[in-house]
């Protein structure tokens, strides 16, 4: 079991890292030949940084758009964020002070996360417009994360696992030393689902996480008159004339 999961962890991490690197490289290499920010847009780079910051932290556009999706989506992502930070304690020794500090909040963030996910799933089933645009994978993605969250919450609040052994196992993995992993069923499910999530990350809609940083309608500076914007292929087109 310890060895099997070690292999899976290494494989999933490799897929995640190289897969994401490959996609991000594609986004970087693909030019944006025209200025297409959705206006009104900032006219300076720092303004754009602020716009992006608001999109990522408070989902500004989504807030304008739909308060329910915003509420559930934000609960989910903010919860997820705290939960992931809280998980850092398994991978650091000694645990960083600020990770220790957020431990109690992270615990309840998991509830917020599940509430958010539940709301999103409910919308997907109930609202006819959202149902229409959903493929099976869209439901499964929510169920997958709900599965991870639910097993995690179970471990936190009901059937505790052997955290000391698990931490030793994970720290071992990081230095390529395979130690023993606790094998209680809830943890095994939790980890299996996490591995699945990592593996599909770079080939699914989870690409929205890196994608948002590359969206030209959001990350371009509104200065086409002041500064000539031209892509490599457009220059080639020009010189071939």
């Amino acid at each position: 079991m310890s060895i099997l999961f070690a292999i899976l962890f290494y494989a999933a991490t490799a897929i995640l890292v190289f897969g994401l690197a490959y996609r991000i490289r594609k986004y970087i290499k693909t030019p944006a030949p025209l200025k297409i920010p959705t206006t009104p847009a900032p006219t300076t780079t720092s303004g754009v940084a602020f716009r992006m910051f608001k999109e990522i932290t408070i989902f500004e556009s989504l807030f304008k758009s739909n308060k329910w999706i915003w509420l559930f989506g934000w609960l989910f992502h903010f919860g997820l964020f705290l939960v992931l930070l809280r998980h850092l304690r398994y991978f650091t020794d000694p645990v960083w002070w600020w990770v220790a500090l957020i431990q109690p909040f992270g615990k309840y963030a998991s509830i917020a996360m599940l509430v958010g996910l539940g709301g999103l799933l409910l919308r997907r089933i109930v609202v006819d417009r959202v149902r229409y645009i959903s493929a099976p994978s869209d439901y499964l993605m929510l169920l997958l994360i709900i599965g991870i969250g639910a097993t995690g919450v179970l471990m936190t609040f009901v059937t505790h696992t052997d955290i000391v052994t698990l931490k030793s196992y994970l720290l071992g993995l990081m230095v390529f030393d395979i130690r023993t992993m606790p094998t209680d069923i809830v943890l095994v499910i939790h980890l299996s689902l996490v591995i699945l999530l990592m593996a599909i990350f770079p080939i699914s809609k989870l690409l929205h996480a890196p994608g948002v940083f590359f969206s030209p309608t959001r990350n371009q500076v509104d200065n086409p008159r002041e500064k000539r914007h031209i892509s490599a292929w457009a220059i080639k087109l020009e010189s071939s004339k």
């Binding site: 944006a32 959202v130 809609k205 690409l207 929205h208 969206s215």
Partner: peptide
């Protein structure tokens, strides 16, 4: 880039 990013990124949030 717009096309490439947009085709990948939609989460079907509605």
């Amino acid at each position: 880039r717009s096309l490439s990013v947009y085709l990948d990124s939609c989460v079907k949030c509605g």
